[in-house]
């Protein structure tokens, strides 16, 4: 297991918290919570060691496109970059849906 930390500047607050995915083979779990700070902080715990650079690229790309101030926790069980990006997008979508439901 390896733990990685990343941080990105952000301006828009995440609408509501969101949880997606499962820590199962080739998949991952993401917890996203709104943050009061103008930053996105990501903690990754992954079962596969040595892919820090790949994680940095995948996450940087995602949070460059999506401006959300959030605390993000990722528990990974060997997901591919494609799956990671898809789950991140899903988490954003769920967050927006949750916000609509709450209204």
């Amino acid at each position: 297991m390896e733990t990685l930390f990343f941080e990105y500047p952000a301006t828009k607050t995440l609408p509501r918290r969101a949880h997606v995915g499962v820590v199962g083979s080739g998949d991952l779990e993401i917890l996203m919570e709104p943050s009061a700070e103008a930053r996105t902080k990501v903690t990754v715990r992954t079962s596969v060691k040595g892919f820090g650079k790949t994680w940095a690229k995948v996450l940087e790309r995602f949070f460059t496109v999506h401006d959300v101030a959030a605390t993000v926790k990722i528990n990974d069980f060997g997901a591919t970059p494609g799956v990671v990006t898809m789950r991140l997008a899903q988490a954003l979508e769920v967050s927006q849906d949750n916000a609509i439901l709450k209204r």
Partner: peptide
Amino acid sequence: LVPQGIVPQS
């Protein structure tokens, strides 16, 4: 799990 190097689930 973490002390044994296994990724936990929330």
